[in-house]
Simulated scan of single mutants.
Amino acid sequence: MSTDASPAPRGGTHDGVASRDLRSLPKAELHLHIEGTLEPELVFALAERNGIPLPYADVAELRARYAFDGLQSFLDLYYACMAVLVTEQDFYDLALAYLARAHDQGVRHAEIFFDPQAHTPRGISIDTVLDGLGRAMADAAARWDISGGLILCFLRDRPVAEAERTLESVAPRAHDLLGVGLDSAEDGFPPSLFEAVFGRAAELGLHRVAHAGEEGPPAYVAEALDLLGVERVDHGVRSIEDAALVQRLVADRVPLTVCPLSNRRLNAESSFQALPRLLEAGLVVTLNSDDPAYFGGYIADNYAVVADEFALDDTVLAGLARNSIDASFASPDRRAALLAEVAAWSAR
């Protein structure tokens, strides 16, 4: 049963543009913060379960706060709502709710970000977080054949030493992780600060990704590549401002995990409108939902919005889905199987 009551996301109605239900397009989601899937209804349910008072009268009042004038105003509410996540069951319920929606939206592989530094200072052990999220991933694989894994993200606006301690705390459980990432407020916190942390992650055999070029300059994208050794760039939309960087990204086939509704809801309309230029330049673009509870749409909704806004047809949309699978850290056999599903969708 679907957990999403919104109408089925569709493409545009003009000639040559997708009009099929885009939930049926098989896809991978590579840029998804699990804490950003915390819907207001679940905030209240978990608050009641854990005896946590909320400064909002009801769901409607909280949902009304989901309007932002930039990244920082979003982050303020984002971290405040996390106070309701306390037990392993809370993290399980959070992740399974997302994965149920993801299944309904055509996600066949999900690489999920989580922010332990938003929880451990509150006295929540990292094992509690990992156990809850991991159990949900296992159940989603059994129920819906969704593959994927967990990517531990460091909060770049907190001390680097804290990131180092966080990584060492999970080193014995590195096998439970797919990789590491870098997120939170970007401006003023260049990737170079975390070079040693990412070097240690590489020693642990973890994949590496990082947010760069969202609010930060194109130079941050180059730093993420050169100093952190990232295999994908999260967001990366401001790369379009640097022609040499664009050429490098195209030549090296570096994927960008673009989040259209996130850009629009954070008043970064220029980033949203950059999508056609990224595609025309030949960049490996993937579409993702980022923090969908806060930004008004899950992954198929993002596909539908860009299909309508930029008149993208089935061929382009299937190409974006193929990019998401090719850019994933799934095994070669799993990628091949999912690419075959996209081909079958195209053939229909």
Rank of each mutant, 00 (worst) to 15 (best):
A97P: 00
G205E: 12
P191E: 01
V59Q: 01
A318N: 01
L225R: 02
A202I: 06
I126R: 11
D291G: 02
V180D: 00
V86N: 05
M1F: 15
F189D: 01
E203K: 14
D76G: 02
D139G: 13
V86Q: 15
F310A: 00
F91E: 06
L245R: 06
A268R: 15
V160F: 06
Q89F: 05
E280V: 06
D234W: 07
H33R: 07
H235Q: 02
E195H: 06
V254W: 01
P159R: 12
R63W: 08
G199M: 09
G216P: 05
Y56G: 04
P172F: 09
E39I: 07
E186C: 01
E29G: 10
H14Q: 13
L193T: 01
A210L: 07
S6P: 00
G11R: 11
P9T: 04
E29W: 09
G11N: 09
L152N: 04
V285G: 01
A268S: 12
A174D: 04
V285S: 00
L77Y: 00
A185Q: 09
V17Q: 03
Y79W: 08
A8Y: 02
H175I: 02
I299V: 15
G236W: 06
D93E: 15
D314R: 11
A142P: 13
R277P: 04
C259S: 04
L152Y: 06
G149F: 03
P276M: 03
P7S: 07
F74H: 01
A110F: 08
L32V: 09
L245I: 08
R200W: 08
G36K: 03
V285T: 01
H211S: 05
L54G: 10
P190E: 00
I146Y: 11
R49V: 05
V17P: 00
I126D: 05
A110L: 07
S125M: 05
M137F: 15
P191K: 09
V180G: 04
A337S: 15
V250F: 12
G205I: 13
A318D: 04
A138K: 13
V170W: 09
I240Q: 11
P276A: 02
E164W: 12
I299C: 10
S2K: 15
G181T: 02
A95H: 13
A163N: 11
E223M: 01
F194Y: 14
M1Y: 14
F44K: 00
A307F: 10
G149C: 05
I146V: 07
L155N: 10
A185R: 11
L42A: 08
F329N: 05
I299Q: 13
D314P: 13
V233G: 05
I52D: 08
A57N: 11
R63M: 06
V43C: 09
